[in-house]
Amino acid sequence: MSSFLDLMYFLVPLVIASIVPLAIVALGGLFSESTGVINIALEGIMVMGAFVGIVVMRLLVINEVFPLQMIAFIGLFIGAISGGLYATLHAFASINMKANQIISATALNLFAPALSIFTARFYFGTSNLNIGANFLIREVPLLSSIPVIGPLLFTDAFLSTYIGVFIFAVAITLLYKTKLGLRLRSVGENPHAADSLGINIYKIRYIGVIISGMLAGMGGVIFVLSFATRFSGTVSGFGFLALAVMIFGQWKPKGILLAALFFAAVRVLANAYSGIPGLQNLTIPSEIYSMLPYVATLVALAFASKNSRAPKAIGEPYDPGKR
């Protein structure tokens, strides 16, 4: 029994560390797609958010102006702002210019890593940026001494994880319990009906895409803080994994959480299966685990596409004359 608990104490924090950025970024995708703008630029926006966030954090760490966890907080904030700004490029192309949203997003995905490697190598001589500090919290005061829950949730944790959970709750409330949220969703389902009710389609879609960018940018910083103390111009396909989470979760928050849990668990299996009794003897290569989320999403799409839950007006530029 105690060995089972030990295993849980080892695995659960790892899974949670993956769930949070996955769910945040997938929710980012949902915000954009709810308003009818496809956002496959999540990957690039994560990279941009992570890059700007990490550069700022590195400067703050070196100058020792703020306490360590305060720096993590600032980093998340900066990541969100730069992600939101970067996403306005996608919003501009998709909304004002009625551009092909896949092409515009592809441009964003290519630009961010190129720019971050280009600048990092020029200024720091390497594309491998070290933040210069480890933000891991060994034990959260008081809470970590709660039996079972303490070791599961409040040891070896990151502040960014807790902030991520909070942001996730706020974002869901915004999307499903407020007037703005209703407008966001209506614009994605039936923009013409929304327009006839006096809703400014362009403005609402901008808001959706910018919030999407903010969540993805913040997710980028959380990703780097949780999985590496360094950043080399990539988030290793995590943005596309988040896209898969959103699709597998059928564009619904509960679905996103469950999909994130599933994908996070698989991700941990891919990286830590050798430490799990019973699995290390199966000799399933880690690549199989890594592939699993994408295969699952593909299978789910093949069986669900005939009655997809995706927003109805997705991918279509708004044309008032089409009413």
Binding site: L89, A93, I103, S104, T106, A107, L108, L110, F111, P113, A114, L115, I117, F118, R121
Partner: peptide, 12 residues
């Protein structure tokens, strides 16, 4: 990497 930057902007 400046080439990739140029290519990305061309796509945009």
């Amino acid at each position: 990497q400046i080439i990739e930057i140029i290519i990305a902007v061309i796509i945009y």
